[in-house]
Design a protein around this nucleic acid. Sequence first.
DNA 1: GTTTTAAATAGGAACAATTTTTAGTTAGTA
DNA 2: TACTAACTAAAAATTGTTCCTATTTAAAAC
Lengths: 140, 140
Amino acid sequence: MDIHHLITKLREKGHKITPQRLAICELVLSSKDHPTADQIYKKLKQKFPTISLATVYQTLHLLKDLGLLLELGFPDCSARFDPNISPHIHIICLKCGKIEDYETENLKEQWAKIVKDIGVEPIIQRLDLYIYCDKCKKNQ
Amino acid sequence: MDIHHLITKLREKGHKITPQRLAICELVLSSKDHPTADQIYKKLKQKFPTISLATVYQTLHLLKDLGLLLELGFPDCSARFDPNISPHIHIICLKCGKIEDYETENLKEQWAKIVKDIGVEPIIQRLDLYIYCDKCKKNQ
DNA sequence: GTTTTAAATAGGAACAATTTTTAGTTAGTA
DNA sequence: TACTAACTAAAAATTGTTCCTATTTAAAAC
């Protein structure tokens, strides 16, 4: 998603283009590591020393409502935000919480078939595969 | 999972068999509706007027650690608990939060193939498909 | 059957993530 | 340039969950 397309989309819905909003969007939409709101907040504080966590949350929810972001809730820790909204698997370690992505054409095809069988109109999906990562297996 | 098998499993790990614990386990392991801790707590209060929410949480986490329960974290609401640990899809309405299960032999086979391709040792999985349910589509 | 003891429970306090509130500021329109 | 709806920041409130600790209990030892 390039920045001009984003700006257009925000304007269409009547949202203002503020420097904070742009910075938050750019940061999260280009991230590969499923950051938490707090991680985004801390990074942006360097550029915007007065930015508040509430603004970060609000902007992330805006992106979520626009369908550009997936919010991943977890039992014991903060929500994490994923800008990749096409079908992919999160390979998550049950111990350390590390997330890796698995995304192939074959997977997308398989998933599309499954969704077609179910016969619903999909908006978005979340596919988590829980494992113990190599590191955690060793240290145990 | 029948109750004697559960008791054996708890004893093996050195956990005591208390009436509260048994009631919580029986209730959640036989539930089909992904209840929250609070829903379980409120139901059990009829039989155990002094039961505490902390006990419910503790027991649910015990079952989770034993691999008998999946805890589903969500962004804006309580965690929900799912006793079905075999591969199935949660069809979840983005508006009202209703969860329906989709579970077929074909899905299990497809998922097994995907996991095999990834080449990791799976512990458990969470497959969510987000939609707008018919009811919410109408009221909009 | 009684005693022992280690673990579980109840209830409330504490905690942390997130949301709401409010007052002041700003982007975009006319 | 003035206007106004939307935004921001900071603080306060809220909510789900966990922690704390005195009391109770299950199960082992006697």
